[in-house]
Nucleic acid binder design. Structure first.
Lengths: 103, 103
DNA sequence: CGTATGGTTGGATTATTGTCAAACAATTAG
DNA sequence: CTAATTGTTTGACAATAATCCAACCATACG
């Protein structure tokens, strides 16, 4: 399995997180993860209106920004929000974004 | 004087705000406004390391995203954070960003 | 082993963005 | 009126980013 880089908590940069969240497709992915918890890339990226390779690029952007964590189980990859890491680094940020998105 | 478009509070979009904040130069401007309150573009853009025309483009981006309000007084233009508008639209967002930025 | 599944990678394309430089515009000061 | 001050606009350019397509790779299943 190929190693996927995840930034350490203390290396998560505010502007990178904001940039990652500032795209409608990625924000939708984040909202899905927030609502439903850990899920496979396939589920998280279903019906987004973009090609699967485009979705894959977005997964990477989110991962490299430190927004999501990805682990491989069998031939599936599971993504989850790095809530604790984000909360400890930027308290309240993720919650305010999610509250602004979810009705 | 040329009219500068400011989005109405209810028209401020989350992704636009996030995108506006996701640039180091613009974030620095926002921080200055948060710390010192209303100031002229000249002061807000001092020592940012970019050309004044570049700074002017950033002012526009912030204004059009609904992050700042600009008014002209004489030949100066004063910018201020739209704190109340942002708070009412996206509660806690601006505070969390500022708290993550200010030591 | 061969094949299907789930996702990534690389190339190509197009759109967006950040930047500077130079010209411009509006206002005030002399 | 003429000069200087404050910002904005326009054009050009380079860098980034979003997207699709096709090929690929790793794993599991028959």
């Amino acid at each position: 399995m190929r190693l996927m880089p995840h930034p350490a908590t203390e290396d998560i940069e505010l502007t990178e997180v904001l940039r990652a969240l500032a795209d409608p497709v990625r924000l939708e992915i984040v909202v899905r993860l927030a609502v439903s918890g850990e899920m496979t890339c396939g589920v998280a990226g279903d019906d987004l209106g973009v090609h699967k390779s485009t979705a894959s690029h977005h997964y990477r952007t989110l991962r490299e920004a430190g927004v999501v964590h990805t682990k491989q189980v069998g031939r599936l990859k599971y993504m989850s929000l790095r809530r604790d890491d984000l909360d400890s680094r930027f308290p309240g940020l993720l919650d305010s974004v999610l509250n602004a998105t979810l009705p």
